[in-house]
């Protein structure tokens, strides 16, 4: 009932562990898989070892999370031991990568493609590193990047876009024109929150990105915009925590649905819970498959 095909990859259900959440190792990714995730995304891999921002990096806010973890990574050349275990992951793996230049993305892609991830996600939209959103804010740069990565590998390429730009559909069009196989949207929504009583920035980075139910409406709106602009499939991410929300995301135009903050709100078995809720809703509405949902 929930089976889904995405970039010619078969998934048991459309729920995906979103990047940057929980999935720092193969063992954790497999734990998400055994808790019902249809596919899993590994924490974005960067060009060189990086600690990320100092704490506080993640703080709970009303209806969501506020974070500026800042892309910690062992660096792609320091993790072969881990990469060799990718073949042991029980569901399709989305390898998320980031860099500061086109060369970074190309080098990382060249290295990790040997370990055969199902999809490579280009994280070009992290608001928590100074140059984290340079690409996703510019259709031109994004086009050059996607072209360069596409010519490096046959693995499907999926750029992850930011809502913190003037026109997300222009960036999506640039991705499609450059040969991207799918789009992931959205990354977190940038904000600067000050602690109301302690009068200090809540995160050491000064600003950060919000996620969770608080951004659900924004995510749905951006996914609709992208849906109207391009043909390639969308992994819709942003605030989905319950079956009802997952179905709304699919109706908005997503083929797959990412879950991130939902892991915090409902536990790692959120995937099982949401798939069960989706099945219940679909049975009630007499809908037999995900494609029927999309209408």
């Amino acid at each position: 009932m929930l089976k889904q095909n995405f970039c010619e990859i078969e998934l048991q259900n459309p729920l995906v562990l979103a990047s940057g959440i929980f999935g720092t190792s193969v063992e954790l990714l497999n734990r998400a898989a055994s808790n019902g995730a249809g596919a899993v995304t590994i924490k974005s891999i960067g060009p060189v070892e990086r600690e990320g921002n100092p704490n506080p990096t993640v703080v709970e806010i009303e209806k969501g999370l506020y974070n500026a973890v800042g892309l910690p990574t062992p660096g792609y050349l320091n993790m072969d031991e881990e990469l060799k275990q990718w073949k042991d992951i029980n569901v399709p793996l989305i390898a998320s990568i980031y860099g500061s230049s086109i060369e970074d993305y190309v080098n990382i892609t060249e290295h990790i493609q040997k370990f055969k991830p199902a999809i490579i996600e280009l994280n070009i939209s992290c608001p928590n590193k100074d140059d984290g959103m340079v690409f996703a804010k510019s259709p031109g740069l994004t086009k050059d990047l996607v072209k360069a990565v596409k010519s490096t590998t046959d693995i499907p390429i999926m750029p992850k876009l930011t809502p913190n730009c003037d026109n997300i559909s222009q960036v999506a069009i640039a991705c499609e024109a450059a040969g991207a196989d799918a789009i992931c949207a959205i990354n977190t929504v940038q904000k600067e929150i000050i602690h109301p009583k302690l009068k200090a920035p809540l995160l050491s980075y000064g600003k950060g990105g919000i996620s969770g139910p608080v951004i659900r409406e924004i995510a749905l709106e951006k996914v609709r915009e992208i849906r109207d602009a391009v043909e390639i499939p969308i992994l819709g991410v942003g605030g989905v925590t319950y079956g009802k929300g997952a179905i709304e995301m699919i109706k908005a135009g997503a083929s797959l649905v990412g879950i991130g903050s939902g892991v915090y709100l409902r536990g790692i078995d959120v995937f099982e819970k949401v798939t069960n809720e989706m099945k219940d809703i679909m049975k009630k509405e007499g809908i037999g498959s995900i494609n029927e949902l999309k209408g």
């Binding site: 959440i21 954790l28 704490n55 709970e60 999370l65």
Partner: peptide, 10 residues
């Protein structure tokens, strides 16, 4: 530890 709440995987 970074998040303390089971999401960052640190």
């Amino acid at each position: 530890m970074k998040c303390g709440i089971g999401v960052c995987g640190s």
